[in-house]
């Protein structure tokens, strides 16, 4: 690991003053919170910043606020363990708590933060290999496209085929979460869905619109009274791993026999960003029955373009949707 200076601001303004304004220099300074992704990047020499800006001494960012209407405002320094155990999150935003609990291991969840999870870098092994000058690292080629692409994107890929590794992101997008980005000139709020970018739409070396001199400070999850939700993740290892594919589903269901009035469906592990599937969600509306679940599965993967080694993700996604809907029907 290259030597760096550690700056420890105690206010957001101080932290912002530490950051590079010029995109070309953005990796000279890195934001540092739990460090569970960043330190692995530093050890692999994927980024070699001169300075880390530690956010952990800035007060107030490690809290979950439950607003009067039941909405959550989650500070970027809240740990994944805290979020997974938070009573209101578990009771009213189950998919979010389940996603948090599915991340990494107990050791990672005790230190890793919400801001860090949402901003973690891709797991593609070409990206993670110091020796591979891939597109994500400013090179000219996505080696996964013609290479070993078992873990890569089936949707939204090109010219880079990474998948976004966050478990939290699909669950939060399913709840229409909004992020606050604080910059030197003030703050902007946007939906988490719009926070993430596809490689073809924006800077291929980044996964979001976060500017080099901005900090994601809070995530607001609006209350959805009457909704139930779940997050189902499929991993290659039973113990702990990133998702091969995952699905976050939230539904508002009423009556008996149960009918779904409204639904959200977001996929993880299959695209360079959390993959919202509104047409699949529409297919769920109506009588809550396996025929509709299967229809939603078909719509969710419509347009999928698997690479040589990842076509298994198509039936996997369909199966995960059935599993998620079955779980929700039992609640």
């Amino acid at each position: 690991m290259k030597a760096f200076e550690l700056a420890r601001p105690v206010t957001l303004d101080q932290a912002l003053a530490e950051l590079e304004k010029d995109s070309a220099k953005r990796d000279r300074t890195k934001l540092f919170a739990g460090g569970q992704d960043l330190l692995t990047e530093l050890k692999e020499h994927l980024v070699e910043p001169d300075k880390l800006v530690d956010l952990k001494r800035i007060p107030g960012l490690d809290r979950i606020e439950v607003q009067a209407d039941g909405s959550l405002v989650i500070g970027c320094l809240v740990t994944l363990a805290t979020l997974a155990e938070h009573p209101e999150t578990r009771n009213f935003f189950s998919a979010v708590a389940e996603a948090a609990r599915s991340i990494g291991s107990a050791q990672i969840r005790s230190q890793g933060t919400v801001g860090g999870n949402l901003n973690q870098r891709p797991r593609c092994w070409y990206y993670r290999n110091e020796q591979a000058p891939c597109l994500k690292k400013g090179g000219s080629e996505c080696f996964a496209y013609a290479g070993l692409n078992k873990y890569n994107a089936i949707l939204g890929g090109g010219p880079s085929y990474i998948v976004h590794p966050s478990d939290l992101a699909p669950a939060l997008v399913a709840f229409d979460a909004e992020v606050t980005l604080r910059g030197a000139k003030g703050e902007r709020k946007l939906s988490l869905e719009k926070f993430y970018t596809l490689p073809a739409e924006a800077d291929v070396t980044r996964e979001s619109v976060l500017a080099p001199d901005e900090i994601l400070t809070h995530v607001r999850v609006p209350a959805k009274p009457g909704w139930t939700s779940t997050y189902v993740k499929f991993k290659e290892r039973g113990s702990y791993d990133f998702a091969l594919a995952s699905v976050a589903v939230a539904v508002r269901a009423t009556g008996s026999p149960r009918a779904i009035q409204d639904a959200r469906l977001v996929l993880g592990g299959v695209a360079p960003k959390p993959w919202s599937a509104p047409k699949a969600a529409e297919a769920l509306v109506g009588v809550d029955d396996p025929k509709n679940w299967a229809a939603a599965g078909n719509r969710a993967v419509a347009g999928a373009e698997p690479l040589a080694h990842n076509a298994y993700k198509v039936p996997l996604v369909k199966g995960l949707i059935l599993k998620a809907m079955e779980a929700l029907a039992k609640r």
């Binding site: 460090g35 330190l39 692995t40 050890k43 107990a106 050791q107 005790s110 230190q111």
Partner: peptide, 27 residues
């Protein structure tokens, strides 16, 4: 592994389990 994958370096930090390889000593 020194990369937060194997757990061999697990310690308790304020009673919580953590990978010592993914913590800065100054923290």
């Amino acid at each position: 592994c020194d990369m937060g994958s194997c757990g061999a370096c697990t310690v308790h930090v304020d009673q919580k389990p953590a990978y010592a390889c993914l913590l800065l000593a100054v923290d």
